[in-house]
């Protein structure tokens, strides 16, 4: 996903000379396609994320579109108030790029798990949040928001393998549907959409028809698309490499409650702080019930509850 992001950014910079890339001293073996081609538009600000987001305000006010890169935890949480009082308050086209959303940095431990970044970022009404599910969608999301005149947070993950049936589709403020089953909905965000689609395939093999809704952006909200889907299924399973509170699970629960939909929501994601729990992405997904097999079982259980 990161490779496609950097490729898309290089393309964007060729068309738009306002584009700058700032990094908080991260991105080895990743950002070079940009830094080597546009050395004068690349600034390593050092390990100083707050300053990076402050700099971005001064740069954007003067007409630039600064992309600010770091690991998702450090890009989102450390400078959060700078983002809020800076790019968001001033309505400037700053891009905050967080690498390794969710449990991506599995062997690095909890300080590197971005499991609340979506909650924090979507809480800012004037901050667009992009959380693509695969490499092709990343490329599409960068292109679709090239001329967005307000700030955006871009949540990247390592996993770039194409989500089957998604085909790189992305529309800002929309949910992309995969399949059209009416038995159950699976609503997913980020690269675990891969597991969600595989879960739907497993369910289909057992005669249960699911629709997967891939949510890849907030603000503008994809609530209408999600509501349309949830209005025609008795149960929905939400899937995210993120705390179940504040992120996609909360978002879906808000929709169901506010619109009075008759749909049972079961939220799958990280519960409790993952202290002392490291391992591969696959291991950690298993720990939190996010493998395809577990998700399929959860969907069957949810349908059993609603009868």
């Amino acid at each position: 996903m990161r490779r496609q992001f950097v490729d898309a950014l290089v393309d964007l910079a060729a068309d738009d000379e306002r584009v700058l890339l700032l990094t908080g001293d991260l991105g080895f073996n990743a950002l070079e396609p940009f830094s080597e081609r546009y050395p004068e538009r690349f600034v390593n600000v050092g390990v100083a994320e707050q300053n990076m987001l402050g700099l971005a305000v001064g740069l954007a006010e003067a007409g630039f579109v600064p992309f600010c890169y770091s690991i998702a935890t450090f890009a989102s949480m450390r400078p959060y108030e700078f983002i809020r009082n800076g790019a968001v308050l001033h309505e400037l086209p700053v891009r905050i790029v967080g690498m390794g959303g969710g449990l991506d940095y599995g062997h690095n431990g909890v300080t590197h798990y971005a499991v609340e970044d979506l909650a924090l970022m979507r809480a800012q009404p004037d901050l667009t949040v992009l959380a693509p599910a695969d490499g092709d969608q990343t490329r599409a999301a960068v292109a679709a928001t090239a001329h967005l005149d307000r700030p955006a947070y871009v949540r990247l993950e390592r996993e770039g393998t194409g989500v089957r049936g998604l085909d790189g589709r992305f529309s800002l403020g929309r949910a992309e549907l995969v399949g059209n089953g009416s038995d159950v909905a699976i609503v997913a965000i980020g690269s675990v959409a891969h597991e969600a689609v595989e879960a739907a395939e497993r369910l289909a093999a057992d005669g249960i028809e699911a629709t997967v809704a891939v949510v890849s952006s907030f603000n503008p909200s994809p609530a209408d698309d999600v509501a349309d889907l949830l209005a025609r299924v008795p149960a929905a399973v939400t899937v995210e490499a993120h705390y179940v509170d504040g992120g996609l699970g909360s978002f879906v629960a808000e929709i169901v409650a506010e619109r009075g939909l008759d749909c049972r929501v079961v939220r799958c994601g990280v519960t409790g702080m993952p202290r002392g729990r490291s391992g591969s992405r696959a291991h950690l997904l298993g720990l939190y019930g996010l493998t395809a097999e577990q998700l399929a079982t959860t969907a069957v259980d949810a349908l059993a509850i609603v009868g």
Partner: peptide, 22 residues
């Protein structure tokens, strides 16, 4: 620029100064 939370203005100013140079 909007201000009120201490410690943020000099970063904004440094960005504005870098922008002027660019």
């Amino acid at each position: 620029f909007s201000t009120g939370s201490l410690g943020q203005g000099l970063s904004i100013g440094a960005g504005a100064a870098l922008a002027a140079r660019l």
